[in-house]
Design a protein around this nucleic acid. Structure first.
Lengths: 107, 107
DNA sequence: ACGCAATTGTAGATTATTTACAATAATTGT
DNA sequence: ACAATTATTGTAAATAATCTACAATTGCGT
């Protein structure tokens, strides 16, 4: 552990984002989307959570990001369907970016 | 919302890290430190959480990071005290890095 | 008005966290 | 060896947060 500043400190903290999991209440606070609506969107199949049966929902970085993007569009007036489609495309880019950064981190 | 890749996608998602809050159970899963030990470290004043009375603990990015660093050192054999001191110095760097990146984000 | 999409409300059951008191290891100094 | 300190863990009872499922409501286009 060094104690001089370095970009390793956090500039690319994917390791962290990769391990990140968050409960529904916190996701609601982070995104501003009510828990009830988050569950509704999940019912519709637009977002996903790792809900092992009998346990509470857990959301990873990608799905929190997705909720943030969905909220943006839905607030603008998009239908859920249209927003979902648009966000899916955007998520492809984000997934690619994450994958390539993860690759770099492995080197 | 664009749909071509860009570094804005996530290369510096401080906005996200800044808003991030996580419950104790998830922090435990992320860091590998048992909840009981997290509470103990908080009792000792080494880490902090935003616990409004009557509500459950919430941890922000900085404190989760701190727990990860503490765990590293404690597992290596450091005393809690020594680990805490070393981590505090490291956190100064991380805080600086976060602050400067936040500044950039505001431009 | 009608139909549909989107959202919200809520009750009762279940899961997770909290606090507080106590017990157990491990290490260090005398 | 023994006492003292540090670090950790165990647990019970109360409280907070979440779960599911059924239902109601709102808003918008036809």
């Amino acid at each position: 552990m060094e104690n001089k500043p370095s970009k390793e400190d956090l500039a690319f903290d994917f390791d962290f984002l990769d391990k990140l999991i968050v409960g529904i209440g916190e996701v609601s606070d982070i995104t501003g989307v009510p828990t009830r609506k988050i569950r509704y969107w999940e019912d519709k199949g637009i977002i996903h959570s790792s809900s092992e049966s009998g346990k509470n929902r857990r959301f990873d970085y990608k799905n929190i990001k997705k909720i943030l993007l969905l909220k943006e569009l839905v607030d603008e007036g998009y239908t859920l369907e249209a927003a979902s489609e648009k966000v899916s495309k955007r998520m492809e880019m984000i997934n690619k970016a994450l994958a390539s950064l993860k690759k770099k981190a492995d080197e």
